[in-house]
């Protein structure tokens, strides 16, 4: 280590002073603890901007690839296909990056900072929810990129700006809820690699065996059954509806209901694992 890096020595008297003045303020409320953890997630993005590659480059790749590879064959023209594809690709990209929530959490646990958080007198779920709020920023960024690119390529949503924003809002709610599966797995899995692999096994069939790319009518019947119950298909249907102004209350309610179920089931599981020992 060079001299410019050499730290100054600790100042023992100053430390004694610092210890003497470290009176405990009243504990923060749940909301400010939440915001602080959200702030931490943003700081991570600031220091590791390469993290954003998955929310920028991958969605762009997906959108361009599928539009121009399949558009002509599947819908006759790429611009027609884009109208159907864009909401699906948007949902797929964002839902895919929810995996990173679990991966980040898993890394945190390995680093030992989690033990420190767990010994703080704070509302404990704020550790997880705060991180999820930070992730929502990444989801929003990915959504913005896809929609802007889509508009450039000729995407014209009949639902207007309000429809598009509602679709994104619905997507954020679903992603937030889905993340609780990954947070639970983040505690269970031994390494972030194994977590990543496990998540991929779930995510690939969930997103590809859906109504994103093709009309389920063209599939064999047994596959249609799966596609029809696949929660992801319901999300895409509702988002298409919102963007094109044809969404029914039922379509939206189904997605909200699914989201609620995910949180009710995996929220407590995550918090149980959080409190439990490693």
């Amino acid at each position: 280590m060079t001299d410019t890096n050499a730290p100054a020595d600790p100042d023992i008297e100053h430390i004694q002073g610092a210890v003497a003045s470290g009176d405990r303020p009243s504990a923060p409320n749940a909301f400010s603890a939440l915001l602080t953890f959200g702030w931490r997630a943003l700081l991570k993005i600031k220091h590791l901007p390469e993290q954003l590659l998955d929310v920028t480059a991958i969605p762009i790749m997906f959108l361009l690839m599928f539009t121009y590879l399949f558009g002509g064959a599947l819908a006759g023209s790429t611009s027609v296909y884009l109208q159907e594809l864009l909401p699906g690709i948007l949902a797929m990209s964002v839902v895919f990056i929810t995996i990173y929530t679990g991966v980040t959490l898993n890394d945190d646990i390995d680093e030992g900072i989690f033990d420190r958080f767990r010994t703080l007198p704070i509302w404990q779920p704020s550790v997880i929810i705060g991180a999820l709020l930070g992730d929502a920023v990444r989801y929003t960024l990915a959504s913005t990129i896809i929609i802007v690119l889509g508009l450039v390529l000729g995407f014209s949503p009949n639902g207007g700006a309000f429809g598009v924003l509602s679709a994104v809002a619905l997507l954020l709610v679903f992603s937030f809820s889905l993340s609780w599966i990954w947070t639970a797995l983040g505690f269970v899995m031994r390494s972030s690699e194994s977590l990543m692999n496990a998540s991929m096994i779930v995510m690939f069939p969930l997103t590809f065996v859906s109504n994103v790319f093709v009309d389920p009518e063209t599939m064999p019947e047994w596959l249609q059954v799966f596609v029809d119950v696949n929660p992801f298909s319901h999300l895409v249907t509702a988002m298409r509806g919102l963007m094109h102004g044809t969404a029914t209350t039922e379509e939206i309610s189904v997605v909200l209901l699914m989201s609620a179920v995910l949180i009710i089931v995996f929220g407590p599981v995550t918090m149980h694992l959080f409190r439990r020992e490693q």
């Binding site: 405990r24 923060p28 991570k44 590791l48 030992g112 900072i113 703080l120 007198p121």
Partner: peptide
């Protein structure tokens, strides 16, 4: 036993983070 601060953050950010979480 192992470093229990956030290695991606700066020293200052780590301490501010904890100070905020402590109220």
């Amino acid at each position: 036993q192992f470093v229990s601060v956030d290695e991606d953050l700066t020293g200052h950010e780590n301490l501010v983070l904890l100070a905020k979480l402590l109220g």
